[in-house]
Design a protein around this nucleic acid. Structure first.
Length: 259
DNA sequence: ATGTCCAAGCATCTTGGA
């Protein structure tokens, strides 16, 4: 089974790109971030035409997440618990049946957190604390649980072309990395790093010729419960998609599993 | 030095967000 994450940066502007990629790759499950659309505005018919079941958790203008799946959904959960005043659409989870039982796939768009001096940075850290509580509950289920998406976090120096330039940014500073490490310490495995110690960027800014200079960062991750990590075969970053017509600034990252 | 792109609105540019 192939399970992918992709920050699409606007579903309406990228529909053609997404349809091309889905038709070519036919992944089983895809989580999308930054759909920048309300649920009613999501172009579900075009994606359903490719055989996908579609569940969205959108909002106007910003954020918004979705799951596309060739398998039918057994359950869908929208939103991260822990703060009733939080109206940002950043989490959607689906449960699917496979031969060995159930798998749980949770797509997230973790807050960017910049500028660090603004209220956005404490919101990011608080969101990550809430995510830890959520993950702790999921781990108790002892099922294959795949937490994937745009984490807006650079885990280590190898994950940036110019780590010194990023140090201090909300994506790469001690408070953020401490929260990310906590997820690891709880038992969630960084799938890409379980398969390679090579550079593997997933984002290249639209600005400053970042793609041309390969000035990328790795911020899109698959984090796996032990039961999911046991079934991981490989991880593939679809780097070539960044060079396609009218690309997103992120590329798809795909985990291959023996489910 | 700055370089880009998307969504939305009392709109055809401006603004906020990344």
């Amino acid at each position: 089974m192939r399970i992918a994450t992709w920050n699409i940066n606007g579903i309406k502007a990228r529909l053609e790109l997404l349809v091309t990629w889905l038709s070519q790759e036919k992944p089983d499950i895809v989580v999308l971030q930054e759909i920048k659309s309300v649920d009613e505005g999501f172009p579900r018919a075009e994606i359903e035409a490719l055989g996908y079941n579609v569940e969205t958790h959108g909002q106007k203008s910003w954020n918004g997440v979705a799951i596309l799946s060739l398998l039918p959904f057994d359950e869908v959960t929208r939103g991260l618990p822990g703060d009733d005043s939080d109206e940002q659409a950043r989490l959607i989870e689906g449960v699917f049946s496979v031969e060995s039982g159930a798998i749980r796939v949770c797509g997230i768009y973790l807050p960017n957190g910049n500028p660090v001096e603004s209220e956005k940075f404490p919101y990011k850290l608080a969101w990550m604390r809430r995510l830890e509580a959520y993950v702790a509950e999921r781990l108790l289920l002892e099922e294959p649980f795949i937490l994937l998406g745009d984490f807006n976090l650079i885990p280590a120096p190898i994950d940036a072309h110019d780590p010194k330039a990023w140090w201090g940014d909300a994506l790469y500073r001690p408070e953020s990395l401490e929260r990310f490490r906590t997820l690891s310490n709880m038992g969630m495995t960084d799938a890409l790093r379980a398969t390679t110690s090579e550079e593997a960027y997933t984002f290249w800014d639209f600005q400053a010729g970042a793609w041309r200079r390969n000035a990328g960062i790795r911020i899109d991750h698959l984090m796996l419960s032990p039961q999911a990590a046991d079934r991981l075969d490989d991880v593939r970053v679809h780097k070539d998609v960044r060079g396609w017509e009218k690309p997103s600034d992120h590329v798809p990252v795909e985990g291959q599993f023996s489910f």
